[in-house]
């Protein structure tokens, strides 16, 4: 089956989606750094563990 080349219909909406993805990524990075700053690097791992 021949590979169908996908092309965006509009660059504007692509830019909007890219901007939204960058914002979400930046927020995730900010939250991660803040959590590491507050509670240490182990907090990202321990936060998912079941408390004993």
């Amino acid at each position: 089956m021949a590979k169908k080349a996908t092309t965006p219909a509009s660059d504007v909406y692509t830019a909007i989606l890219a901007l939204a993805c960058l914002a979400v990524l930046a927020a995730a990075v900010f939250v991660t750094l803040t959590c590491m700053d507050y509670y240490g690097s182990d907090a990202l791992i321990k936060i998912a563990q079941i408390p004993r």
Partner: peptide, 10 residues
Amino acid sequence: LSVFSLLLAG
């Protein structure tokens, strides 16, 4: 989706 993503991220 973009708008809500921005608002939620903010």
